[in-house]
Design a binder for these strands. Structure first.
Length: 420
RNA sequence: GUGGGUAUAGCUCAGUUGGUUAGAGCGCUAGGUUGUGGCCCUAGAGGUCAAGGGUUCAAAUCCCUUUAUUCACCCCA
């Protein structure tokens, strides 16, 4: 039977990988300028971390986790996201004793057992970051400024920042009862899902895509209009901060993050032209999470962006990605004796940091040059017995056809010093 | 879990109302008179027509089942 790649995964091949690397490097560079350090954590964690961190009632935990027992009988799970692990690490490594706030970024693959569709995979790449130990609105604004600048720098068009506040535990409890009251006499006309949501999670009623439910929910009271005074002030300060530094945003009262740990500020960067899965980056504040996972009460804010979706959006925006490296010079040869000289030159150049190609398939000179052309080499030189005897060879500029006779001894120096 | 589309060479795709050795372009390998690439020409390799079953004298083509893939719902990066 033919071996095939697992559903929802993909190989990232040469030609495509350069695009990913470009974004990953740009991300790391920017994050480090904002004072973040990289963190790495395991691909799998004990299942309990995600159950408690992401939340037992979320879709991620209920139906999307890659969970299995290891040989010691412990239940482990492939990470469906990064925040829970970062917080676990923060607690476990005593980072509450570090200079506050602690800023960490990560570049990971994540795993969710979902049905695949455009922009959604079972293994996918996330670039994310967390700030732990700041409850100030300045943290929120700084994160949003950084992300806005990052996307701007990548030349992305049609990406819109949507923000909302979903309050804290206290205002949310109060809001839920307000919401239930509003919907109490309307449940008969709602879809089956919404009837269930009415009981389990009334806030989700606002998210339904069914026409009649949208109609019913249209005039429902919004959480944003029912925040407690502290949350209201925090949100006001965040938007005021964004206004001050001219970051455009849309207040989207319908953003309800799907992970349990979010409080107060939540946001998404939504792209045009990506299909149904159009959220490129999402995040928010999670002030209670550290405590919930057994640490001391520590506020936090973070985000994650989907690398696949981001690269796709950049392609849609016509971004000119860097292409793969091409050889500076191709060293051709005729005969065994010449090969040994050519090999020495090639390897010397390579060790001096120059990308140099040489045929290792015993091909004819014609095939060698064809190879050089396919690899898009800038220069070529051919060594044969005559050249070796006279210590002279012709270097050719493959683009301009110009040729130049040089001594074989000088080839390495000429290429390194770029005087060809 | 639910619904729709698709499945022929490494890639993009032709393939007539069922008709005999299944095609093209690109790519790959080699050659075009023993030492100079691209363009052009020639040749070669590479297909259980997704798999299994059925109808038929005859199936890539029609029917059924399965699988894969893709888009969408739910939800999310």
């Amino acid at each position: 039977m033919k071996i095939s790649i697992p559903k929802g995964t993909k190989d990232i091949l040469p030609g495509e990988i350069e695009k990913y690397k470009y974004v990953q490097t740009a991300f790391a560079d920017m994050l480090e300028n904002f004072g973040y350090s990289q963190i790495r954590f395991p691909v799998f964690e004990y299942t309990e971390l995600f159950q408690r961190g992401v939340g037992d009632t979320t879709d991620i935990v209920q139906k999307e986790m890659y969970t299995f027992n290891d040989k010691g009988g412990r239940s482990v799970t492939l990470r469906p996201e990064g925040t829970a692990s970062v917080v676990r690490s923060y607690i476990e490594n005593g980072m509450s004793s570090n200079t506050q706030p602690v800023k960490l970024y990560y570049d990971i693959t994540a795993y969710r057992y979902e049905n695949v569709q455009k922009g959604r995979y079972r293994e996918f790449n996330q670039l994310g970051a967390e700030i732990l130990g700041s409850d100030s609105c300045n943290a929120d604004v700084e994160v949003l400024f950084m992300l806005y600048s990052f996307f701007n720098g990548l030349g992305i068009q049609g990406l819109h920042l949507n923000i909302n506040s979903i309050g804290c535990k206290t205002c949310r409890a109060e809001y839920n009862s307000i919401l239930k009251e509003y919907f109490s006499d309307k449940t008969d006309n709602m879809c089956a899902d919404c009837k269930r949501r009415y009981i389990t999670n009334p806030m989700r009623l606002l998210d339904c895509k069914v026409d009649k439910c949208i109609e019913i929910a249209k005039d429902a009271p919004m959480l944003l209009d029912n925040l407690c005074d502290n949350c209201k002030e925090h949100f006001y300060n965040v938007t005021a901060g964004l206004d001050e530094i001219n970051i455009p945003y849309i207040i989207n009262k319908r953003i309800v993050r799907g992970l349990d740990y979010y409080v107060r500020t939540v946001f998404e960067f939504i792209a045009e032209g990506l299909g149904a899965q159009n959220t490129v980056c999402a995040g928010g504040r999670y002030d209670g999470l550290v405590e919930q996972l057994g640490g001391t009460d520590t506020p936090g804010i973070g985000f994650a962006m989907g690398l696949e979706r981001l690269v796709e959006t950049m392609k849609n925006s016509g971004f000119k990605f860097p292409t793969a490296k091409t050889p500076v010079i191709f060293i051709g040869y005729i005969g065994e004796k010449a090969f040994k000289v050519a090999r020495t030159i090639a390897n010397e150049l390579r060790l001096k940091g120059i990308y140099c190609e040489i045929d290792i398939n015993d091909r004819s000179l014609k095939a060698q040059l064809k190879f050089a052309d396919k690899k898009d080499a800038l220069y070529s030189v051919v060594l044969g017995d005559a050249e070796i005897d006279t210590n002279k060879a012709i270097i050719k500029n493959m683009k301009t056809q110009e040729t130049k006779e040089v001594s074989i001894d000088s080839i390495v120096r000429r290429v390194v010093e770029n005087i060809i």
